[in-house]
């Protein structure tokens, strides 16, 4: 019982440390990738300006905090597995992975997970820079909030990963599966709270959106960090259900897809 567990821990350790090294190879690119995630910081400027002119329910300081939190969540939940997976299929690299006694998905998961740590210092520097610009927005969340936030961000990442990896499975059937991801990204952009906090949505829309997976990838963790009132238990529950749904779908498509992959010549 203990032996397989120890072996799995060792495998995970090695995968993470090697993929961390791999990501650190791209340190110059990492800075650019971090910066490319600064859309929330641009939107922050827009919303802060708007809230100064009329009462939107959130104060300018709250908007600053919200979008800084969004920036942080986004940094930890960036996923690109669909492009990688597509390339593996096109270049035939998937075949090598299939001949190893470890599900190929773990390689992708480990490389994404390791990358979080590689980009952390850059994200922190950028965050520090913004607090210099807006010292009045600086806040220290309470330890409980931080703990919940960490769990929520981890789940947000897992959800986003499983979701995109599920779309990636369609690469077995179509030449450019990332077209689906790009279409889906539109919904993600608006419904996750990346462009506007859910508090700005009409109440009916907000109630509907709360049953979709989107808010749990951005809005929910960001709200936890800010200390806004959110339904913690229900939100965690919905996140887990969506992770499970996409996971089952993923495995189903994986099995069907492999049959097709081998049918077309691997």
């Amino acid at each position: 019982m203990l032996k397989p567990l120890r072996a799995s821990v060792r495998t995970a350790n090695t995968l993470l440390s090697v993929y961390y090294a791999y990501m650190v190879e791209y340190r110059a690119e990492l800075l650019l990738w971090v910066l490319s995630g600064s859309l929330p910081l641009i939107l922050m400027g827009v919303w802060v300006e708007a809230s100064r002119q009329e009462d939107l329910g959130l104060s300018p300081t709250e908007f600053i905090r919200y979008f800084l939190a969004v920036f942080l969540v986004r940094q930890f939940s960036v996923v690109w597995v669909i492009w990688e997976f597509e390339r593996e299929i096109v270049e035939g690299k998937l075949s090598f992975r299939l001949l190893q006694p470890l599900d190929p998905g773990w390689h992708h998961f480990a490389s994404h997970f390791a990358e979080r740590f590689a980009r952390l210092p850059f994200a922190m520097v950028l965050l520090g820079f913004f607090f210099l610009l807006y010292p009045q927005a600086f806040w220290v969340p309470n330890p409980g909030a931080i703990m919940f936030f960490v769990v929520a961000v981890a789940l947000a990442f897992v959800l986003r990963f499983v979701m995109q990896y599920t779309f990636a499975m369609l690469a077995f059937w179509m030449e450019r599966a990332n077209a689906i991801e790009q279409f889906w990204f539109l919904f993600y952009l608006f419904l996750s709270g990346l462009i506007a906090p859910l508090e700005m949505f009409p109440p009916v829309l907000r109630r509907v959106v709360e049953w979709t997976p989107f808010p749990y990838m951005i809005h929910f963790p960001a709200s936890l960090l800010m200390g806004t009132q959110v339904q913690v238990a229900r939100s965690f529950g919905i996140t887990l259900v969506w992770i499970a749904v996409f996971f089952v779908l993923n495995r189903l498509l994986w099995r069907k897809g492999l049959r097709r992959y081998s049918g077309m010549g691997a």
Binding site: T14, L15, V18
Partner: peptide, 27 residues
């Protein structure tokens, strides 16, 4: 399986790192 026209090693890392991954995968 070794295919002369395809490669499994991680392009930007030393061979040893790819070998470590294989060692982990095969325990």
């Amino acid at each position: 399986l070794v295919m002369g026209q395809k490669q499994q090693l991680l392009w930007d890392l030393p061979t040893l790192d790819s070998l470590r991954i294989n060692a982990a995968v095969y325990n």
